[in-house]
Amino acid sequence: MSILLFKRKMYESKFIKKIVKVIGDKLRRTPLSVDPNIIGMNYRAENINLWLQHGSTDPDILVIYGISGIGKTTIAKFVYNSNYTRFEGSSFIENIKEISRQPNGLVQIQSQLLSEILIGRKVKIHSVSKGITAIEDALWSRRVLIVLDDVDHMDQLEAVLGLEYRFCPGSKIIITTKRAKLLKAHQVTMVHAIETLDPKESLELLSWHAFGQDHPLEDYIEYSEKLVDHCGGLPLALKVLGSSLLGEMIDVWKSALNKLEDIPNGEIISKLRVSYDSLQDDDDRKLFLHIACFLIGKDKDYIVKILDGCDLYTIVGIQNLIDRCLVTIDKFDKVQMHDLIRGMGREIVRLESKDPWKGSRVWRHMDSFKILVENNVRNMCYM
């Protein structure tokens, strides 16, 4: 009897240690910091939460897709915080595009993933190929939740997931990206395209940042609604502009709105411009600027006919712009662009020169009229 009792106590001891380890691992994992003023997040995240909680037997990959500043990282953090304790291990790797450009950036990403999944245990990695093997060894038997934020190239995915994506059944991988081509990546099982906020949600988000409450002050309603219209439902713009006007008088709001009609906010432009700067060549950049200045809302075939005549490779170029969320094609086959993306393109042209006639493009009627008048005067002087 004493031997049986001894074995039983040994079994109970091991069982208790296992429970303590599982609880300890969960306690050592902490939630991510998320903006407390998240508008409309519960219903926007509903389908992703259902997908995360679905007991599938295969590893699943979901892609969260949308333009810069629309809230891809925010929604990824929100669903991660709501679900990471359901998994045996979890990792959220932010700004992958930026990290991957650093020396040994992909190895750095692999090291972070392993450290988080293994709860702080250090694994030395000397190359990307060895890192892929180490990740496979660590994850084949663990149900994990992994978020890869701001991915813009397949080699970044392959450095973490490998070519075969050997993960434990029930594991979930979320990818956020501005690149449409990644939606076709191997084994992607679901795509979540984020929509802009509606006017009511936009006004609430702006109000939290400009007034510290969910609605504007009575005297500021008119200007708040105009600012909401300018932002076009883009959370980034609503946060930046709302915060910049916090505590300001009405005359400052009015002046700021007048300025935005001619000169977009620099902080917003710099974040939106990342997609433009990532275009492969000058041909695609010229195409984007032509559309931003002159051709929004025009039929795709019409644009191809016009710009192919300007020695641009328009069909493949438009596809490259779609890939980076710079343009869309609507159901009527017309090329469309978010107002703030258009403003970013026109600001690039405006900054080429202080004098409109020295820039590469002129789209405002008053500038065109001024150039024609001055040219006529100049020609008369030489007669």
Rank of each mutant, 00 (worst) to 15 (best):
I263W: 00
L113G: 10
R28Q: 13
Y302S: 08
V188Q: 06
V316P: 08
Q213F: 01
Q336I: 03
V123A: 06
M190P: 02
T177V: 09
L27Y: 12
L246R: 04
G105D: 12
E347H: 14
I322K: 15
L161S: 14
V20H: 03
Q53Y: 02
R364G: 03
E195K: 14
Y223C: 13
M41G: 06
K97Q: 11
D323C: 04
W51H: 09
Y220N: 08
Y43Q: 13
G162N: 15
M154W: 03
G170S: 02
D333H: 07
Q187T: 00
V20N: 12
V20R: 09
G105L: 03
F211K: 10
I221E: 09
I322M: 15
T133F: 12
K18T: 08
L289N: 07
I175E: 14
D251R: 04
G212N: 08
C310G: 00
S90V: 01
M190I: 00
K334G: 10
H365G: 05
V144D: 07
R28S: 07
D308P: 01
L340P: 13
T328R: 14
I291M: 10
L307N: 01
G162E: 03
K172F: 11
A256M: 10
H153P: 02
S171G: 09
R361I: 05
K9V: 03
I117K: 01
T196Y: 10
L50N: 14
Q319K: 03
R285Y: 00
K124W: 01
S2Y: 07
G89M: 05
C325P: 12
L139V: 15
I194E: 14
E158T: 15
I93K: 04
P103H: 13
I61E: 09
R179V: 09
Y165L: 13
R142Q: 12
D25C: 12
N376C: 11
F294Q: 09
F87S: 07
I70F: 10
P264W: 07
N375D: 13
N37M: 05
T189D: 06
D137L: 08
K300A: 12
H192E: 13
D137M: 11
I268C: 05
D355V: 14
L4D: 15
S270E: 15
E201G: 07
R179H: 05
I329E: 11
L62V: 05
I93Q: 02
T196P: 01
R364S: 06
Y84E: 09
L206S: 06
E98I: 10
